[in-house]
């Protein structure tokens, strides 16, 4: 029952982030929706490998006897977070450039093709 609540809340957060991305008229709110989606995904990826009663996978003896959490999803999340940083920075750079060119950040004003 606890696992259903936990995973269900994370999936709800992902779907709400998708809704923010698709339904907003401000360009910065689109980038915020992208941020909510990536945060939900990273938390989900880390929490897959939780072992009950386990510690962090950093050891000081060569032969360890305690249980440890799964280290593979943590390594995957490290890469994912750095890629999300690069994506958000590029998206915000495009928003600033669009503001300089058209003078507004409403998405309604950026739909016309100029010739």
């Amino acid at each position: 029952m606890l696992s259903v609540i936990f995973y269900g809340l994370l999936m709800l957060m992902f779907v709400i982030g998708l809704g923010i991305l698709l339904l907003s008229r401000n360009a910065i709110k689109v980038v915020m929706g992208l941020g909510v989606m990536t945060t939900a995904l990273n938390v989900f990826l880390v929490s897959i490998g939780y072992v009950e009663g386990g510690t962090a996978p950093i050891f000081f003896d060569v032969n360890f006897t305690t249980k440890a959490s799964d280290p593979v999803p943590q390594a995957l999340t490290l890469t994912s977070i750095v890629i999300d940083i690069a994506l958000t920075a590029l998206a915000l750079g495009f928003v600033v450039y669009l503001f300089k060119k058209t003078g507004s950040i409403e998405l309604r004003d950026m739909r016309r093709l100029r010739g």
Partner: peptide, 10 residues
């Protein structure tokens, strides 16, 4: 959710 393992077991 039917195919994900329970939260806490390996």
């Amino acid at each position: 959710l039917y195919s994900i393992h329970t939260f806490g077991q390996p």
